[in-house]
Design a protein around this nucleic acid. Sequence first.
DNA 1: TTGAAAGCGGTACCAC
DNA 2: GTGGTACCGCTTTCAA
Lengths: 338, 338
Amino acid sequence: MVTMRDVAARAGVSVATVSFVVNGSKPVRADTRERVEEAMRSLGFRRNPVGAALARRGHTRIVALLYPALERPLTPTAVAFFTSASRRARERGYDLVMWPIGNDAEQVDVLARTGLVDGVLLMEVQLDDPRVDALRAADVPFALIGRTADPDGLAFVDIDFPASVLEALDRLRTLGHSRIAFVAGSEPGYHHAARTRAEVAYQDAMRAHGVEPTVIHISEEPIAGRALGAAFAVDHPDTTAVVLLNEHAAAGFLIGLAGAGTAVPHDLSVISMGTSAYMAGMGEPRLTYMRAPGPELGEWGLDALLERILSPDEAPQQRLLACEFVPGDTVERVLTNR
Amino acid sequence: MVTMRDVAARAGVSVATVSFVVNGSKPVRADTRERVEEAMRSLGFRRNPVGAALARRGHTRIVALLYPALERPLTPTAVAFFTSASRRARERGYDLVMWPIGNDAEQVDVLARTGLVDGVLLMEVQLDDPRVDALRAADVPFALIGRTADPDGLAFVDIDFPASVLEALDRLRTLGHSRIAFVAGSEPGYHHAARTRAEVAYQDAMRAHGVEPTVIHISEEPIAGRALGAAFAVDHPDTTAVVLLNEHAAAGFLIGLAGAGTAVPHDLSVISMGTSAYMAGMGEPRLTYMRAPGPELGEWGLDALLERILSPDEAPQQRLLACEFVPGDTVERVLTNR
DNA sequence: TTGAAAGCGGTACCAC
DNA sequence: GTGGTACCGCTTTCAA
């Protein structure tokens, strides 16, 4: 392994000077710099980040995306988020790695104190999330994708699900729908913040229109969607439209409906919330959906995190972005005689 | 941050002693150890891996899964692999992070030299893969998921696609099919080793039976599958069965076929290779598939890697595992009058 | 059994 | 503009 000492010796300068040219941290005379660079080139020098990190008490220029991958399935939206954040990180001279963790604070704590990463991006945030407290306590710069019940003073980017739900409901109502059900994922003991907010927005909106809300929870997998679809017309005969917040189950739901002879959108309109084009392409008929702004949020999330790292005194960035409506073939005006 | 110095001071011993009890690297008298442990507890000490890594040039107990996530979509199978390897890592006292990289050797090189990870698992291996050479040159322990054209002396675990393809073809032939097409993914300039091997196995088997092979490449996304399915009966009127190696496109393919009035399995039988139950659940009718042994390979892959790290002198582990046939509703005896 | 001390590869402050 | 050098947190001989 070629070290700075080797380079310094070869170029006839001190390690300090080498450090200056490597990091551009101080001006160096052109000819000296030239000699150093030539030495680095011929020796094949690469700066060792571990040494650098240690010297500056951390600062590896690595940030981690914490995802409970062992407990929750990775949606295409989450993947989009990851790749976009990752690309952005590279643009800004950082590396982003995905670090699978549990939902408990313990692991976060361990990771945080290692000093191996300069900061973390936390996904799948719960309303009351112990990991957030752990990150705060460990004094690690972090930003959330999603937000807790009370995100004051926290850096976050989040999908504006309430706004998106309202838009979906409005569109359906404009087409004459009033008995609209809400289908979401269910994970025992997991209070996914985004889902909860969406659900509350749905319920409030329904009640405001004098209709009793219908919330259905099914697990996050295609077959759960199939099962629901197969029995839907029988179990919910009055419902004319469904707002679905369960990307994994969406395509299966349509399959189940079709198998049971429930025509979409003729008998039932469906809007899938927070969905990727990828997943929508799996649906038949083509899903009408609210696109999850995964790529945008990935970039913003990374920027928010770097701001915490580089300018800890600035007010934390907080940004919301609603989903974008994408027309498809699963929504139709409700039958008037119904 | 609590350091070993702090602990040592509190316990009235030297940092060396603290190090011994932390790592169990030398025997320490019971009462001394007790004092040290108590000091660590009350101070909340966590050993800093960066310092440790630097001191012994590596050994962070972190391993990385290198995946070209920015260039290739993450399949459910890859995700299963990741989660399984990750779980196994934890069992063995390591952490596994997913590190998105490009296909070039450069990035591998940088990562490798950092000493930030003890070893790497490389996915999406190409037949002739520059990253493998880079890993070798950098002298980093590594194991492959997949394998290059000549994997001699390399640690790898891989799906035995040739065997799996032969099984699929046999099953189809037993049901009277002979004109069987092969549909795979296509990424320009990317010689995915597994796909190539599968393709060759298919072509050889077809020729051995005196039938001209038909290989079709479509991009890895649901809509590409739809498009292919929609035109399939017209473009390939003689084909009675399809072996598909393109997880992203499988469900879309079935949708496209159905939309064009091509009945599955009546008009066309379909077997999807290297597919996850998750993806199969997205298909209608229920896909007949060869299950990709992602979970098994994840575990084996991690074990193979740790063996490289812990016992570099042992012969590298090399394991192949075929896919497992899972019956579904997309395969049927061929019409005799056809 | 325990301690002192020399690094590991870099950084950055303080002189010159 | 450069060089000397004291750390950063931990591991590991070598002595005591």
